[in-house]
Design a binder for these strands. Sequence first.
RNA 1: GGCGCGGUAGCUCAAUUGGUUAGAGCCCCGGACUGUCGAUCCGGAGGUUGCGGGUUCGAGUCCCGUCCGCGUCGCCA
Length: 593
Amino acid sequence: MLRTHTCGQLRKSDVGTEVTLCGWVESKRDHGGAVFIDLRDRYGLTQVVIGPPEAGSELIDEAGRVPAESVILIRGKVTDRLEGKINEKLATGEIEVRSVHFEVLNACETPPFTPSQSDLPGEDLRLKYRFLDLRRGEMQRAMFLRSKIVKSMRDYFEKHEFIDVETPILGRSTPEGARDYLVPSRVHPTSFYALPQSPQLYKQILMVAGFDRYVQVAKCFRDEDLRADRQPEFTQLDVEMSFVDADDVMGLIDGLVAESAKTVLGKEVSTPLPRMTYSEAMRRFGSDAPDLRFGMEIVDVTAVAKKTEFRVFRGTADSGGFVRGIAVKDAATKYSRRQIDELTEYVKGDFGAKGLAWFRVEDDGTLWSPISKNFDPEHLAEIKTLLEGEPGDLLMFLADTWEVTCKGLAGLRKRLAGELGLIDKDALHCSWVTEFPMFDRDEESGRWVAMHHPFTAPLPSDLPLLEEDPQDCRAQAYDLVINGSEAGGGTVRIHDPATQSKVFDLLGIDEETADDRFGFLLNALKYGAPPHGGIALGIDRWVMLFAGLENIREVIAFPKTQKAADLMTEAPGQVDKDQLAELQLRTVKAKKD
RNA sequence: GGCGCGGUAGCUCAAUUGGUUAGAGCCCCGGACUGUCGAUCCGGAGGUUGCGGGUUCGAGUCCCGUCCGCGUCGCCA
């Protein structure tokens, strides 16, 4: 080792020791006759003094010239700081190192920004110079937290006798689900591999192979548009187990959540984690990943709406729609008409709502609103009672289809809670949402599509519904929700060919297509397939949520921008004509409409 | 693909209704200084206002197009 100690290591007890330190010049205070340097590495900061009597003027001058963020090596003696010069902010603040040797290992060019500057530079610059950005304390902490979380997961599964098996990155495209990233094959011109969206099919086959309990930290790829909590390339903790039901999988993950929260954050999470069915979640929160750190539950007032003369409510209720609302506590004076207009634009623009109805609960307990004259006082009183409105509350309603009221109110609920500061940032609220529907209607084609994936097993009690009423058929599916974010999801899989072909039938996948796309899995299922199920946990999101961050890029070393580019390496990039020729590919510019 | 926010010095930001030579702090460069830890003091350099077009006597500011970054809806089995 070039160094004897790290920059976070030295204490009062080391005074008198000769040490060699290496690190980055975090800051430099040059007094002409003496220079102070804060030397930084991942472990901490140590003050180095280059001055008389032990340093000559040549050394002092050299230290005075060293640019910030250069990597240097210094040798010297650990000494007590002078009376009253102790820096309480530093763990090493009681000592300093008086340098007798000073060496620049790599001088730093003037950097576009420094890790210690208080104004964070724009994110594009941070991404282009990620090596500088990753030197920042926040990024370092996030990466170490990530490492600890992954280790806690690996420890947990090893303790439970899981085997870690790697599955291929070059696989075969399955047009179901998200868009695939494709990789052309040189050896098979005109054929393509696909990067895995998840190791789903491989892990099921590992169950058929008898591994019983499988785990993998798996890179997954989906060529879809990005969000604050979504990257095209992400990491899953992928799990599969044989001879289990949904309870078994959830129970195992309950233990993981509790143990990981405890070892990584020192937080107690009581288990079993609360569970809620999908239909309850949609009814009470309008979302399949409800944020349970605050209340503001959705209330259905369709029955009252039917009795009123207000056309928007009445018309919606009479034509099979829903009128649902939320009570926003103490918000009546906090939201001006203008701000409510903004909320109206929000639900219209983002969720396709036709409008936003609202009432203020006045001091005398009556409801007031620009539309209140359209209502009988007794109906207003009923609405107030249903929402448990109290003076000062703001009641907001959407009159629309079930889907729009769900999405719109869930959006409002989240936005208002954020704006009103109702969310406890320290809370780690974990829960399960269960019994998802098996199928969803595709708006365009009107066909059934699998809500999760086509290998998801229905609830045994709902098996008859596969034929009678697919709409109501529920799946043995479960999502782990942390602070209103989907942190993982899994299902019990179909392991008998009869059910599988019924599901394919419903999805409009004929035998030939099924065989072409998933033949290898269907084949395996015929050769002694145990009942099995599993789950995939989004590691990036876990880290983000455990860290209390709101952006997934903050916990990924080299993330991509919203347009899926890497600003540092400038991927994706052009390739040589020769490379294309070898792959027998030619690029064609798409015609613009 | 839709909607919204943003792009001005190396960095973070400012610039009145469209009006003189586009400013400040940090960074950088030069000088002074032995106790700083956001060092201090003196001096200096640094700009095609993302790019292209238009309106105007005059555009950082208004209009159109385009690129880039961010948020969000669609999308994400």
